[in-house]
Design a binder for these strands. Sequence first.
DNA 1: CGTGTTTTTGAGCCGTGTCAACGATAGTGG
DNA 2: CCACTATCGTTGACACGGCTCAAAAACACG
Lengths: 244, 244
Amino acid sequence: MPLNDILIQKFETNAHISGEDRALIAQLPVFPKSVRAHEDIARQGTEPDHSVFVIEGVLARYQEFAGGDRQTVSLHLKGEMPDLHSLYVRRMDHTLGAVTPAQIALVRHEDLKEAFAKSRTLGEIFWRETLLDAAIFRQWIANNGKRGALAGTAHLLCELYVRAKVVGLLNADGTWTVPLTQQQLADALGLSIVHLNRTLRNLRQSSTVVLDHTRRMQVVDWNRLVKTAGFDPTYLHLVNEHKI
Amino acid sequence: MPLNDILIQKFETNAHISGEDRALIAQLPVFPKSVRAHEDIARQGTEPDHSVFVIEGVLARYQEFAGGDRQTVSLHLKGEMPDLHSLYVRRMDHTLGAVTPAQIALVRHEDLKEAFAKSRTLGEIFWRETLLDAAIFRQWIANNGKRGALAGTAHLLCELYVRAKVVGLLNADGTWTVPLTQQQLADALGLSIVHLNRTLRNLRQSSTVVLDHTRRMQVVDWNRLVKTAGFDPTYLHLVNEHKI
DNA sequence: CGTGTTTTTGAGCCGTGTCAACGATAGTGG
DNA sequence: CCACTATCGTTGACACGGCTCAAAAACACG
């Protein structure tokens, strides 16, 4: 599959795209690159002249605190563009890095803007992507806030499972091989790794969802999981054929 | 002051705007409206055909949970546009409401898009606004997450103080009359009102910042406040003349 | 086989939530 | 002007969720 099709495939989970816009995306010059696990791609304070999208692996945006604590603010799977914002907000106010070994593709801001000049609707599609990104942030505020550890963890699992599903990352049996350590999940939820582990045990023992050292996430009872999480997928704004 | 100038004033804290774009904003048809405290402006699930900006008062976006708990995901002061995203993401995935009596102005999506068609840079300015909105979300994730109650509260106060300052909302003596109840602050921080109250007492007793029943926020020691919060204003992306 | 990483568990502590009451303040109507 | 009410802020006592420290178990990899 040509690299740019990955981007198109992802965008089409959220919007219908005209043939013309698909062609423009397909023609976008992209530069593939491998990154190692834990390698930073764009550091806080820098001013990148390009954005990236994920071909394979997982990227995260995070802030670091004194003492080495991390707050992960987003996770990005295949087809997503984690730093589109750098197009119009020059200076990075957080760091983008790989949490697993990953394949990414670089797209120059210049080329993106040129494509937007050719098609207004294309610009709108990319704008919309950044808005959907923000919708996820809003949920994560709640995950880290009023929803306690159990609901927050369940919510994150719901979300990632659906996001993995719509870009075809599930295994044949409907399980998902979670490419994240429990530490990485804990960093996203503002929990200690110990408490996350116990929370996963709760979910396992209540026959809701199984996630353990095998990293195979198996949804035992989707309805119960959704209820535990208070998960309402509206905020993912999936087009009909990708609804859950 | 003409209503649209409020928008221009706010935008200019974040970017330099050409005369042409200023003129386009000035010509935007806007419809003023009063809203009562606690009145909802755009409810979750609806599909508005307009956005709003704040003339006076405070708006909030929030989600409601079973049991009446609320998670506030953003607060909006004079000049801000809390629901620009509805331009390209039709369905509201949260509710926008007034937390104080407020004056707002309605702007039709149609008119905005028409203006964007006349000037590409104008569209970019609005896009950028939504990106800055998202930058604040990222900080709030940390406020509700890894930063504990003390740092989170201090961080929110830093942020709101600066945001109030750049649009000229401070009192002559440099204090800020916080237009929010402690419950509303607690909802934004994912804290109980009791604990927020105690946290404010801590900040008061450590001579960092005074905020009590008078609702007058007085920064006693800005450096100490910034340090307590771990506040780095980069994420507000203020242009030079508005730096703190 | 040995080393490093990740997961899991236990024990105990501390931060934050809950419940309840009181105090302050502002607004309202008699 | 006062009494009444509603809302908000403040404090205390206590419970509990989540954190820290520490160590063992499971696993991945050279």
